[in-house]
Write a protein that binds this DNA or RNA. Structure first.
Lengths: 135, 135
DNA sequence: AAGTAGTTTAGAACGATTTCAAAGTAAAAA
DNA sequence: TTTTTACTTTGAAATCGTTCTAAACTACTT
C-alpha cells in the first residue's frame, strides 16, 4: 500500500480538497484511530487556531463517511427505541428504514470473546446485523 | 412462574401503580414483545381515548427501564459518534461514561449466525459488549 | 478571465428529550 | 379518618444535537 497525502486521499474519494476539508483530514487521517463527535472535532479545530461553522463540520463528516474515509458508529437511529423483550437477544437492523427485528439469543453463537478490560465486568453482549435490501 | 397482574408487577418493581403507569403497563406488558418509541406509545395512548403528557411518558419509560420491566435498545449515546477505524470491528461500551473501546475483528468469533431475512443481504455485523465497573 | 458547479456560512428551524415549578395523588402516619 | 409526606404528573419553556436555507464564496473547467 503506497503512501498518499490527505489532498490525494480526498481527490481519490471524489471530494474537492477545500481548505476546510483539509483541516479536518489533517486532524483525522493521520493513521491514529479514534472516536469523536462533531463537537469534539470543533473544539480541536478551534484550539488549533482555526475555526469552522458547525454546519460545515457536519457536512464534511457526512461526506467523509459516505466516501468511506471514516465510519459512523452504529446507533439504531436518532430516536430512543424501547423493547418489551427483556431477555438477552440480538437485532437485525434495516439500514434503510431503521426497523429492528429480534434475533433470539440461541440463533447466534459467540464462540470467542475478547478479554474484558481490567476493573470491568461484562454486562451484556448485543449483536447487530445490518441489512441492505438485495438488488 | 406464576401469573401476576400489572399492578402487582409495578409494586414488585418498587413503582407506585399510578393511573398513568397502569395505562402504559397495560399497553406494553401484555406478553407480546415489540419495539416502540415514546411517540409511538403516545399515539396508542391517544387513540385508546386516554391522554398523557409526553414528559410523563418519558418519565415512565425511564422508570420501567431502570426497573427492568422493559429494555432500551442500545445506541452508543444520543450523540453521533464517528470512528476513524474503517475496518470491520467491534466495541466495548462503558455504560457509565459512554466511552467506546475498539475490539479488533479477530478478537471475536461469531460461530453461528441466523438466517438473513428474504430479500435482504448482510451488510455488516457489529458486536457491542457493555461494561459495568466492577464493585 | 469567465462561467459553473460545488462548498461554506450564520442563523433559523427542527425533532427528541429534559427541566421546571406548580398542582395533583398515593401511601404512611397520626 | 384526616393529615402529612413523598412521589408523580403536567404543560410550557429550555436544551441539545443536527439539518436546512439561501446568500456569499471558491475550486475547477472552459
Amino acid at each position: 500500500m503506497m503512501l498518499m497525502n490527505n489532498k490525494e486521499k480526498l481527490r481519490k474519494a471524489g471530494l474537492r480538497p477545500t481548505k476546510q476539508r483539509m483541516i479536518i483530514a489533517n486532524i483525522l487521517l493521520n493513521g491514529i484511530n479514534r472516536h469523536f463527535t462533531a463537537e469534539n472535532l470543533q473544539n480541536e479545530i478551534n484550539s488549533s487556531g482555526n475555526s469552522m461553522s458547525i454546519a460545515t463540520i457536519y457536512n464534511c463528516l457526512k461526506k467523509f463517511r459516505n466516501c468511506g474515509l471514516i465510519k459512523q458508529v452504529e446507533s439504531s437511529k436518532e430516536t430512543a427505541i424501547f423493547d418489551t423483550n427483556i431477555d438477552q437477544h440480538h437485532h437485525f437492523l434495516d439500514e434503510e428504514t431503521g426497523e429492528l427485528i429480534d434475533i433470539e439469543n440461541e440463533e447466534i453463537n459467540l464462540f470467542k470473546l475478547p478479554e474484558i478490560p481490567k476493573g470491568y465486568m461484562n454486562s451484556g453482549v448485543e449483536v447487530l446485523i445490518k441489512l441492505k435490501r438485495q438488488n
